[in-house]
Simulated scan of single mutants.
Amino acid sequence: MDTEAVRSFVRAAELGQLQHAADELGVTQQAVSKRIATLERQLGVQLFTRTARGVELTLDGQAFLPHARGIVTGADRAVTAVTPGSRALRVDVLGFRSAQAVVLHDYWRSHPGVHLDVVTLKANDPRTVVTAIQAGDVDASFRTVTDPAALPPGVRMIHAFDSPLELLVGPRHPLASARTLTPAQLRGHRIWVPGIAPRSEWAEFYDQLVTAFDLCLDGAGPHFGDEVLLDTLAESADVATFVGARDRYVWPASYDLRRIPIVDPVLVYPLSLLLPEHAHPGLRPIINHLRNLPPLTAKAWRPSWASPAT
């Protein structure tokens, strides 16, 4: 469907005259008339009746008008979403159920007028994300370059917030009844984290975690999605996985999965925000929101590139 024809119909309906619609749209009356005639042929109905004073909507025209307005509004928003200088603030997160997305949603709920696009770059290598920031494809990304010295000029990284890990297990797992767990209690248990991508920040995180606490981390096999992972945990008596405390997972009640906090020390995944040196002004209130999140006060372990002050 030709959106310009729909736009011509909407303006003619609202103004009552084809000439007025043409003047506003910057085309001839004949062009508006042809667009509407083509639209009527496509729909198989008559949208207007012509009168001495202009045009009036038929019953079909009245039924079509609110939907036509929605088409025009959607088209305008689509153009705005990709127009440099006018599109919404665009922030990359690892996934829409991740702690990053949850925190951004909390921010948006308290600032509902903010124009915010939350996207997910299909990239595991943070250098790819840095390139997207340099190109202006995204305004910020919740990713970490584990060697800050490798950041190119014009891109900076700030600490966003800490994400404590929890152990997620099924009801038959030997640790399922625990209220909390220490890292020492995890030794010898299979912790399945499928699809760990080489060169990714989380690959380095888990390498350091395994070394620090002598854990049995199994990264074998492709990651077929959260649903398959949750199915496996529900059926297994020996498989567990790590999830972030703010990560949002949903499973059937019959699965009876358990999220168990890890303490003494808390295992922290530090989340960072990559952004250009001259950042979008809409990022400032988001950064303030991140800084106002409740701090983690318990004894914690973090990977080598992070500290509470980063």
Rank of each mutant, 00 (worst) to 15 (best):
D231G: 03
G170Y: 01
V228D: 14
G170V: 02
L165H: 05
R143L: 12
V130W: 10
G170D: 05
V138D: 08
L168C: 03
I191A: 03
D162F: 05
N124V: 13
D231M: 04
P164N: 02
S141I: 12
L215F: 00
G113P: 13
H223I: 12
P198I: 03
F205I: 03
F142K: 05
A176K: 01
L186I: 02
S177Q: 11
Q134S: 13
L168V: 02
T120D: 12
V145I: 15
E166R: 00
P164I: 03
A140Y: 08
P153Y: 01
G113H: 15
R187D: 07
V155H: 07
A135Q: 14
C216S: 09
P126A: 10
A135I: 10
A203E: 06
F161Y: 12
F142S: 00
D125H: 13
I158Q: 08
S163N: 02
D162H: 04
D218Q: 13
A178T: 06
F161D: 09
A123Q: 12
I191V: 05
A197C: 03
R179K: 15
H159T: 07
R179M: 14
V130T: 11
L116Y: 14
V114F: 14
D162P: 00
R179C: 07
S177T: 06
P153V: 06
P198L: 03
W192P: 03
A149M: 13
T131G: 13
D117L: 07
L229A: 10
P174Y: 11
G219T: 14
P194L: 07
G219C: 10
H223A: 15
D214N: 01
F142D: 02
L175Y: 06
E166S: 01
L116V: 15
W192L: 04
D139Y: 11
P183F: 03
T180H: 07
F224S: 09
A140I: 12
L165Y: 04
H115M: 13
L229H: 10
R187M: 00
G195S: 03
L175M: 09
R199D: 11
R190D: 08
V145W: 13
G170P: 00
T211G: 03
G219M: 11
E227Y: 06
F224I: 09
W192Q: 01
P194E: 06
P164Y: 05
A150W: 12
E166F: 01
T128K: 08
L181H: 00
V114T: 15
H173A: 04
T182G: 01
A176I: 10
R156W: 15
H189Q: 05
T131H: 12
S200R: 06
V193F: 09
F224R: 13
L175C: 05
G225Y: 10
P171W: 05
L181A: 02
V193Q: 09
L116Q: 15
P194I: 01
D137I: 12
L165T: 01
A197Q: 08
A135N: 14
